[in-house]
Amino acid sequence: MLDDRARMEAAKKEKVEQILAEFQLQEEDLKKVMRRMQKEMDRGLRLETHEEASVKMLPTYVRSTPEGSEVGDFLSLDLGGTNFRVMLVKVGEGEEGQWSVKTKHQMYSIPEDAMTGTAEMLFDYISECISDFLDKHQMKHKKLPLGFTFSFPVRHEDIDKGILLNWTKGFKASGAEGNNVVGLLRDAIKRRGDFEMDVVAMVNDTVATMISCYYEDHQCEVGMIVGTGCNACYMEEMQNVELVEGDEGRMCVNTEWGAFGDSGELDEFLLEYDRLVDESSANPGQQLYEKLIGGKYMGELVRLVLLRLVDENLLFHGEASEQLRTRGAFETRFVSQVESDTGDRKQIYNILSTLGLRPSTTDCDIVRRACESVSTRAAHMCSAGLAGVINRMRESRSEDVMRITVGVDGSVYKLHPSFKERFHASVRRLTPSCEITFIESEEGSGRGAALVSAVACKKACMLGQ
């Protein structure tokens, strides 16, 4: 009897593995994704193909990295998701002549009506938060230079001027797309009239992360975010950046690689679950690469896999709870928690219980395998993109072996128990001629924006502006 049951459990697990095998990517698959990513990057950089390229390769006008001589107080704003952060950054000489960066910050959550109302409502709310922060720190009387981390696709015309191309991540505030974001912020500050600010720089969160990590390690020339969304930036040779005049030196390019796949480059790798996630998203047909990796989508992918296993009578005796059938019910943090389970399955059992399920031991094991399959594919897909960037940098610099540091931020990278190990191992397999160091950014977005502002202020002083 026991043997029969054991055989049935083994057969069930084997069927589960057959279904989950769809998520496995072979090294040849990853090399294919990497080569296609490089081709799209090239198209994004070139003037004649930029418009139709899915990977936009947006110039950021960040050319210099901090040298350690900029000092002063800077205000930093960070808008990239449902939370908005205001930070005071003091850049100065530390002990023994070292450079020191001290920060104080406060988080504000953005109400739904500000995210989806008008641009005026959104930026009025942001300036209200700045006003509140300055009151708390008794700094209303000071006109501070301000660095703005704005983590949406922007076409820069200068370091302090950028046109919002399109909202992502659930934002829909009308009247912002096609307009200068810094102008919208300046107008809102003017409307309030109770404080003055000098907006000197606007950067993407990947750029802010790279600059913040450069402060720790001067070989950091790539910034990457794996959180709600997924994106990367890197220092490109100016001669390859056709959208900006000049051939000397390097400029940081914001790849906006989340949109890779929007022209069909990933079609052969998309599964039924991916198509369902895409169809029910706020932007169907867009940001397809990001939807395979980002935390906004990972939990939902797992939920759809679990429903398939229920329908195949391989999980929960073929019956799903009402909660499990509800879109968004299986949160991405559950994926991390399930994979963090120590082996007694308590954590998995508790999560499934909150979803109205009474799982068996085998159910718990199957749910864990589903989570591992989805998150491992995410790590491997992400590795193909980064390997594409790094191999490109090595080739354009004609280096036999390139040493490089990548600064990384984002909740999936930082909080998932195995993502970074799987990701690092896969990147290294795909970049055999590179020695890569990964560092995690601390308060990256805010500190990085302030350091970019410090560079901009120093330049302005040198130019006598």
Rank of each mutant, 00 (worst) to 15 (best):
T342R: 07
G183R: 09
G295A: 15
S360I: 05
L165P: 12
G343T: 07
G183W: 06
D267F: 05
S321V: 13
S131V: 15
E279H: 13
E372V: 04
V181A: 11
E339V: 05
W99H: 15
Q24S: 10
G295I: 11
G356W: 03
L315W: 02
K291Y: 00
G44V: 01
A208C: 10
Q138H: 14
V253K: 02
A454K: 05
F269S: 02
I436A: 01
L134E: 04
I348G: 03
E279G: 06
S433W: 07
N313I: 07
L134Q: 03
Y108W: 13
R394E: 06
A384Y: 00
K143I: 08
L463K: 14
E442V: 09
R325M: 15
C220F: 01
Y125P: 02
A370C: 06
W99F: 11
F148I: 08
H141N: 11
P153G: 08
F74I: 01
K161R: 13
T82A: 13
D247K: 03
H317N: 08
D158N: 14
E128M: 14
L463G: 13
C364S: 09
A201W: 05
P417F: 04
K56I: 11
E40Y: 01
Q24R: 14
E96L: 12
E256G: 11
V226W: 15
T116I: 03
E268W: 03
S69D: 14
K458F: 05
K15L: 13
L184V: 09
R403L: 10
A384F: 05
M393S: 02
T168E: 15
S336P: 12
E248Q: 15
A53G: 04
G80W: 07
E272M: 14
V86G: 06
Y214T: 05
D73V: 01
V199R: 08
M121C: 14
S336Y: 14
L134W: 06
R325I: 14
N179A: 13
Q323T: 07
K39I: 05
I211K: 02
N313K: 04
L88F: 04
I19W: 15
L30S: 09
R428K: 15
G117Q: 06
S64L: 05
E395S: 10
N83D: 04
E51Q: 08
E322M: 02
R7W: 08
A173D: 12
G72N: 00
E157R: 11
L2P: 13
T437N: 10
V277P: 01
E395T: 11
A11K: 08
K102E: 13
I189Y: 12
G94K: 03
T228Y: 11
E128Q: 11
A188R: 03
V427Y: 00
E52Q: 14
K104L: 12
Q18W: 15
T116H: 06
A454C: 12
V200S: 03
E322W: 10
G68R: 08
R308W: 02
R155S: 15
E440S: 11
E237V: 06
A208F: 01
G117F: 10
K32C: 15
V203M: 02
R327Q: 15
G249S: 02
R308F: 04
E300I: 00
K172W: 11
S433V: 05
S100V: 14
H416G: 03
V91G: 08
V374C: 07
M238V: 05
V310F: 04
R43L: 15
V335H: 02
W167Q: 12
N204R: 07
V207C: 07
C461D: 14
N240H: 04
G295Y: 12
T103N: 10
S54F: 02
M210S: 01
F260N: 01
V226D: 04
V408P: 00
G258S: 02
V182T: 09
R327F: 13
P284I: 08
H218E: 12
E67Q: 14
V455H: 02
I189N: 04
G407P: 02
Y413Q: 00
C434G: 01
G183V: 10
L314Y: 12
K12M: 15
V244N: 03
V226F: 01
A11Y: 13
S280P: 03
E22P: 15
D217L: 04
Q347M: 15
V182A: 15
K15M: 13
A114F: 10
L270Y: 08
S76Y: 09
G246E: 02
V181Q: 02
C213Y: 08
T168I: 12
I348S: 05
C233P: 02
E268L: 03
D363P: 00
L324Y: 01
F84G: 07
L79D: 01
Q219K: 11
D160K: 12
M87Y: 14
R7M: 15
D3W: 02
V302T: 07
H218T: 07
T354M: 15
S426H: 11
D278H: 05
M121N: 08
R403S: 13
E421D: 11
L184D: 10
R403D: 07
L271Y: 01
L266I: 01
T342P: 07
Y214K: 08
I351P: 03
D29A: 15
C230Q: 04
H105N: 00
Y61E: 08
G175Y: 05
I163L: 15
G295P: 08
D194H: 05
V226T: 02
L144D: 04
G97T: 08
G44L: 01
G147V: 08
T342A: 09
F269K: 02
A114C: 13
V452H: 10
N313F: 05
L288R: 15
L324E: 00
P284W: 04
V455G: 11
K291P: 00
H218R: 09
S383E: 00
P66W: 04
L355Y: 05
E51N: 02
F195I: 05
L292A: 12
K90H: 05
M197G: 12
K143A: 03
T437R: 11
D363K: 00
P145M: 06
T354F: 03
V401S: 02
S373A: 09
I390V: 10
A10K: 10
R191A: 02
L45R: 03
L430H: 07
E221Y: 03
F260A: 01
L20E: 02
K190N: 12
D262E: 15
G343P: 03
Y215T: 06
T437A: 10
D187R: 09
G170L: 12
K15W: 08
E177Y: 03
V222N: 00
E96Y: 14
E279S: 13
G388L: 02
G407C: 11
R192D: 02
A11R: 12
F150S: 12
G246F: 04
E435V: 13
D194I: 06
D205E: 14
E300K: 01
F171N: 15
L45A: 02
C230V: 14
H50N: 03
L45P: 00
Q106T: 13
I163K: 12
V33T: 12
M8I: 06
Q38K: 13
E265D: 12
L47I: 09
I225D: 04
R5V: 14
D198C: 03
K459A: 09
K190W: 11
T82D: 11
A384N: 01
V207K: 05
E9V: 09
I19A: 03
K104H: 09
D363H: 03
L463R: 14
G94R: 11
L430A: 03
R155L: 10
T437G: 07
T103G: 06
R308S: 05
E440K: 06
R63F: 12
D205Q: 04
K291A: 00
V71Y: 03
T206H: 03
A329T: 15
A119Y: 07
F334G: 03
L430V: 02
R250A: 05
L288Y: 15
N231L: 02
S100D: 12
E196S: 14
M462P: 11
Q219E: 07
C382T: 10
L20I: 00
A201C: 07
L30I: 15
I19K: 02
I439V: 13
V305W: 00
S418D: 12
C233K: 00
G229K: 02
M37L: 09
A6E: 14
I163M: 14
F148P: 01
K459F: 10
K102C: 07
E435Q: 09
E237Q: 06
K32R: 07
R333F: 05
A173T: 14
E196L: 12
F123K: 02
M8T: 14
R369V: 07
G175L: 11
M197L: 10
Q24W: 15
D267C: 05
M381Y: 12
T361V: 05
A10V: 13
H156Q: 09
G318Y: 05
A379Y: 01
D158M: 05
A232P: 03
G448V: 08
G249N: 00
F133K: 00
F334S: 02
E268A: 11
E216R: 02
R250C: 01
A176V: 11
V200T: 13
V86Y: 07
C129N: 03
